[in-house]
Computed example of a mutant assay.
Amino acid sequence: MSVSEGLSIGALAKRTGLAVSAIRYYETQGLIAPWRNAGGQRRYQRADLRRLSFVMIAQQLGLSLPEIRDVLAGLPGNRTPTREDWTRISTGLRDRLNRRIETLQRLRDNLDGCIGCGCLSLPNCALYNPADQAASKGPGPRLVLDGADEASGPLV
């Protein structure tokens, strides 16, 4: 098969490790855009290998498919992305990744105690979240999401 013929969906699945159904799903989500050959079969550009690899990595970083689609929209659709293309994208994702790392570190460090849920079910919640003050900061595990930890002490 020549490069100009493109990759079949089976070849793309084999190279990426994705199921054919996952590739079709990503197509419906606008993450890749194959064309059809004269026989009506999907054909993919070699650049789609990198795009799908990025999708898998970005999902591991916690990006949603709409966020991934927005990032991929900044890549050229007609060629393999260059180092400069990827540098631009990675620079844009760096702050988000750093925030996620900080959140995961706080979660790890507080996992054996109160995780900031505001439930008051553990004895030390009364120390770190008196009268459920975390509830005023919004829903969810505010102490973890907002960066409070044992080192910063009670919310008061």
Rank of each mutant, 00 (worst) to 15 (best):
P81W: 00
R69V: 01
D149G: 14
R99A: 07
G6D: 02
S64A: 07
L107Q: 09
A47T: 04
P81C: 05
V55G: 07
L61R: 01
A151I: 09
G140W: 10
R79L: 02
G39V: 11
Y44A: 08
T87S: 14
D146G: 15
D85Y: 00
L145I: 13
E150D: 11
E102C: 02
Q60N: 04
V3C: 01
R100G: 01
A11D: 11
I101S: 01
L104W: 06
L65Q: 12
Q133N: 10
S121G: 15
M56K: 08
I57W: 05
L65D: 02
N129S: 08
E5G: 04
R94Q: 14
A126L: 14
L65V: 15
R42C: 13
G77M: 07
G140T: 01
V20C: 03
Q59I: 10
S8M: 03
N110P: 06
R24T: 09
T103A: 03
Q29P: 10
Q29E: 15
R99H: 09
C114N: 05
L111D: 05
L12D: 04
A58S: 03
S2G: 10
E5K: 06
P66F: 01
W35P: 12
S8Y: 03
Q59N: 11
Q59C: 01
V3W: 03
I23Y: 06
W86D: 06
N98R: 08
N129T: 10
Y26E: 13
L120A: 13
Q29Y: 08
N129A: 05
D149L: 03
G10A: 02
R43F: 12
T87D: 15
L75C: 05
L111T: 14
L63P: 00
W86S: 08
T82S: 12
C114D: 14
D146W: 04
L111P: 04
N78I: 04
M1Q: 06
Q59V: 04
I32Q: 10
R36T: 15
I89H: 02
F54Y: 12
R15N: 13
E150G: 12
Q133C: 09
N110E: 11
D85H: 06
R108W: 08
G74D: 15
E67M: 03
P139T: 14
N110L: 01
L63W: 02
D48C: 09
W35S: 15
D149C: 12
A151S: 14
S53Q: 05
G153T: 14
M56L: 09
S136P: 03
V3Q: 10
D112P: 00
Q105Y: 05
P81Y: 01
L120V: 10
G118F: 13
A148S: 14
Q133G: 13
L155E: 11
P154L: 04
E84A: 15
N129P: 02
S53T: 05
Q105T: 13
G30H: 04
D48G: 04
